[in-house]
């Protein structure tokens, strides 16, 4: 009966102060949405900028049977438009893929089964970061070239955006998290006040301190959890929608991120919400005079 009792009490309290509780849940929701959104966006940025670090603009995948790599590398390097070229072997490509796909178990499995499936490549950094068309044109005819992919300055923009947003979002998220703690503490405060007579009698007849407190603690945690659930639902919903809407993004930007990532950080976000709720209600329980002895 005890568990049933405490859960029932927690929901009763939530119903009693619906509006105030809604405010608290909203604060948790926004805070966690920013947090979770930042994490998703960070992952998209990471996946899309990894291969293009150090101002690489052109990646030339090489045929498996091609042996004359050194010659090709030297030739490309000699072109006036090229600042630097480096070679990534099959082993290097494998390592890179492991990093790239670390949140995508299905793709990872395929690669781990066939470690040599990924081609070796040349990575080219042009002198002028916005002008790599000539390089591509010259490479197109070369023997041994399987496929060429390029990335525009959008990649840099993406990285810059990530760095900028990261700071702003985390600050906002933490600030709202603090506000959420305070708002939850307030809802618990009201719940305690509404039930002060009951609490007084419980204490008179010898209910243990935890028996009195747990429904309130649970209420805060449920509020935090609800905020977290809504945040995840909205974040994942928006993400899914953008997958459809943004099909025409530049081909080099891939906004697919693994489900593992969403699940792992989603669970963590929920835990965080529950934690915010627990801290809020604990604060309220700690200072409340009806519970003090």
């Amino acid at each position: 009966m005890s568990l049933q009792y405490v859960i029932l009490e927690a929901f009763n309290n939530i119903r009693r102060n619906a509006l105030v509780v809604l405010g608290a849940i909203l604060a948790v929701f926004i805070s966690l949405l920013l947090m979770f959104g930042t994490l998703i966006f960070g992952e998209i940025a990471r996946v899309n900028t990894l291969q293009w670090s150090e101002d690489v603009r052109v990646i030339v995948f090489l045929r498996n049977e091609f042996r004359d790599v050194d010659a090709l590398q030297a030739e490309v390097k000699s072109w006036p438009e090229v600042a630097d070229v480096f070679y990534l072997s099959k082993a290097g490509a494998y390592d890179e893929a492991l990093e790239l796909l670390r949140n995508n178990a299905a793709a990872l499995r395929v690669i781990e089964e066939q470690p040599t499936i990924l081609p070796a490549s040349l990575r080219v950094r042009p002198v002028d970061l916005n002008d790599y068309d000539t390089i591509v044109q010259r490479l197109q005819g070369s023997p041994g070239v399987e496929r060429i992919i390029t990335a525009g300055p959008q990649v840099d923009a993406l990285a810059r955006l990530r760095d900028g947003l990261r700071v702003v979002f985390w600050v906002l998220s933490v600030a709202l998290g603090v506000a959420a703690v305070a708002l939850i503490a307030n809802t618990i405060h009201m719940a305690i006040y509404a039930r002060r007579e009951e609490i007084e009698i419980m204490r008179l007849v010898g209910a243990s301190n935890w028996f009195v407190r747990i429904p309130f603690l649970l209420e805060g945690m449920i509020e935090g959890l609800l905020g977290g659930v809504i945040a995840i639902a909205v974040a994942v919903g928006v993400y899914r929608l953008s997958l459809d809407r943004l099909a025409e993004l530049p081909s080099f930007i891939d906004i697919q991120i693994g489900n593992e990532f969403l699940v792992r950080w989603g669970v963590l976000t929920l835990v965080f919400g529950v934690l915010v709720g627990a801290i809020g209600s604990s604060l309220s329980l700690a200072v409340h005079r009806y519970l003090r002895t």
């Binding site: 204490r203 007849v205 010898g206 301190n209």
Partner: peptide
């Protein structure tokens, strides 16, 4: 303080 409930269980008020 935490033992008060036990005392209260042997007292009616």
């Amino acid at each position: 303080n935490w033992k008060i409930p036990h005392l209260r269980r042997s007292i009616g008020t």
